[in-house]
């Protein structure tokens, strides 16, 4: 074999090697392309899955939030309802407390008035107590206490406060309707307005002093204290109490006083007879 043949053969062998290398390269490239394609597909799948997961996750979260929101709204509504109920209860309790406090004061006033009226058998003290009740507890500035004459059915003044001397010395003139209400029906008369002119002798209220159904006297109210705008529930209760208890207290104390005086006279007379 010549040198050139050997070289040709050598070149041929090298080209064969190169071809083999290129073939392997081609196969490797094809494998790479395949792998690349597979990875691309996988990436796409993962992206798709991620998107789905994200979508699902957001949707669930929103739903959960909506549910929580709904529950909170219900809770808020319930709390608002309870708050309104408790506020109303609180308001009712406050009103009840004020009412109880008012009743407590009424009872205290009535107790004191009743206790004091029956605490003495001295007619002057009884009258003084009636005056104190009218001034200190009811808040009357001008009034006169009259006793009724059974025969003439006229009113004779017994004591008064804040009125002219004429009023405490004269008789009480009442309008026929008022007279019928107070004297015949034994009911308390209240005028529309709680002021009257003491000079004119017409009271704004006339409280019959009664023992059972019999009217033994009248308390005529002419004027309230300036700081007292009008009569309240307690005042009506006190005046009602006076209508019954003051009458008994005044009459019994006067009877006791008369009996005592007569007893003393009889005792003195007996003593005189003994000494003769």
């Amino acid at each position: 074999m010549s040198t050139s043949d050997a070289e040709i053969h050598n070149v041929f062998a090298k080209s064969e090697e190169l071809l083999e290398m290129l073939r392997k390269g081609k196969e490797f490239t094809e494998q790479l392309l395949k792998e690349n394609e597979r990875l691309r597909l996988r990436t796409l799948q993962l992206e798709q899955e991620t998107l789905e997961l994200q979508e699902r996750s957001t949707k669930g979260h929103v739903e959960r939030l909506v549910e929580e929101n709904k529950q909170l709204k219900e809770k808020l509504s319930h709390l608002e309802k309870r708050f309104a109920e408790i506020e109303q209860e609180n308001f009712d309790f406050a009103a009840k407390y004020a009412e109880v406090q008012q009743q407590n004061e009424n009872l205290a006033n009535l107790y004191v008035a009743s206790y004091q009226l029956h605490s003495t058998l001295d007619p002057n003290e009884v009258i003084q107590i009636v005056k104190e009740i009218l001034i200190d507890l009811v808040g009357v500035e001008a009034f006169v206490i009259y006793m009724t004459d059974k025969k003439t059915r006229t009113f004779t003044p017994l004591a008064g406060e804040g009125v002219s001397p004429q009023l405490t010395s004269g008789t009480l003139e009442l309008a026929p309707a008022v007279r019928a209400k107070v004297l015949d029906a034994a009911e308390t008369y209240y005028a529309q307005k709680e002021t009257a002119d003491p000079q004119q002798g017409r009271p704004f209220a006339a409280i019959p002093l009664k023992i059972k159904k019999e009217v033994v006297g009248v308390i005529a109210l002419f004027k309230l204290l300036s700081q007292k705008a009008h009569l309240g529930a307690t005042d009506y209760e006190l005046l009602n109490l006076l209508a019954g208890h003051a009458a008994t207290a005044i009459v019994s104390s006067r009877l006791y006083f008369d009996a005592e005086r007569k007893l003393k006279t009889i005792e003195a007379f007996i003593e005189l007879l003994k000494n003769r």
């Binding site: 004191v112 206790y115 200190d136």
Partner: peptide
């Protein structure tokens, strides 16, 4: 001097 007032105040 009023026994009524004294009693009412004491009660209060």
């Amino acid at each position: 001097d009023s026994a009524t007032m004294r009693q009412l105040i004491c009660l209060t």
